[in-house]
Simulated assay, not measured.
Amino acid sequence: MIDVALLGIIRRWYIRDRISIREIARRLDISRNTVRRYIRSDVSEPAYPARRSPSSLDDFTAKLSAWLSADAVKSRKQRRTLKQMFLDLRELGYEGSYDRVAAFSRQWKVGQMERVKSASKSTRIEEKKGDYKIPLHEFTKHALLGEYAYFNAHSSLVACNLFDISSADPREHFLASLVVAYLHSNAPLLDNDGFVAGQALISEMLRHGFFEDQIRHALRKLATKRLIETPHAHYRELPVDDHELPDQFHYRATSVGIYHIRYWSASFAFLDAVSTDTPIFDDDARAEVVKYAASFDIEKRYRKADRFRRYLETQWHAFSFNENYYNFVELLAAQDHTFTAVKTVIDRGALQPRR
């Protein structure tokens, strides 16, 4: 039986986008013979939506979607097979067939691919002069801000404010980054699956002058936001009581966490977003960030982000962190081009302040 929705995706990828049969099969998790069968099929794609009939899976699609989403960010070894998900649904009362679950999984993956493709298109922000506008990557914007105009730690879909603190200690601005960087480095002793014992991780951070409460707060936050993970996804999927110490678990950095510390956290977009969400211990720096906090004007946003960047660099030097696995100054230098790009546009007078 030919699934016309899947047929449209496969033909579009193969004919228009010139994606190979092997790659299409990998993306959709189906065999290459199945891809060939869809490409050669005489079935035409309808110009109208297919009629929707009730399905025995309807009551379980939310649960299945949640499982598929959770598995999407796990390593291959940690993921459940679709067969296991089918059996778990049976335990919850699902009485339908495995084929229906497999079909839903394929459509879910297609939907994810289409959303990523759509989100990857550049959009344009409003500040402009004449016909010129600054491109803004919509995926980055949505990942940072969620549905809000400003960064909100609870609504941001992916981003985690690495510079936020739990105590009145500016040293803590760098604790989260140091944790992720340490887990990603060759410094710690790893188990067979690449995890580091919580006690060893805490000992390393104590060596930098942090307190146990600060470290534990960071571990809980990072695990909840998927920047680090335990073997069984504690905090993210398995709730952990507040009285239970995170010391007992093992951790490793995720791809989300690595992206934060290597590419994102020193960029203009990230610092612009989180500057107003971070306690600042320098009066002048705090006053300038607060002054421009509510503005959408690109020049004022640049001043705000640049002042916050200089504040963080000063704090980094003040505490003399000296570790091979993380150097904030080098990260700033690597992402300086993101500030230069914005500054170049401002200097050309391409943008005018809003009135």
Rank of each mutant, 00 (worst) to 15 (best):
W108V: 02
Y150Q: 11
V158P: 00
Y148I: 05
V110C: 08
R124W: 13
Y98G: 02
M113V: 07
E127C: 11
P135H: 07
K121C: 12
A119S: 07
Q112K: 13
K109Y: 08
R115D: 11
T140D: 09
K121Q: 12
E114N: 04
T140A: 07
V101W: 00
E126K: 12
S105I: 02
V101I: 06
G111V: 05
S120D: 13
E126P: 06
A119W: 08
M113E: 12
E114C: 06
E138L: 13
A102H: 04
L145E: 03
N161F: 02
Y150K: 15
L136N: 08
S105P: 03
A159H: 03
E114V: 12
G111P: 01
T123S: 12
Y132M: 04
G146K: 01
R106C: 13
R124M: 14
L157H: 05
Y150T: 12
T140P: 01
E126M: 13
L162H: 01
A149W: 07
A143I: 01
K129P: 00
T123Q: 10
I125D: 15
W108S: 02
A149F: 10
V116F: 09
L157M: 10
A159I: 02
L145F: 09
E138K: 14
C160K: 02
L145C: 07
A103C: 04
K128M: 05
E126L: 12
L136E: 12
K128R: 10
R124H: 13
R115V: 11
N161E: 09
D131Q: 14
G130C: 06
S122C: 12
S118P: 02
K109R: 14
Y150H: 10
V101D: 00
V116G: 02
S155Q: 12
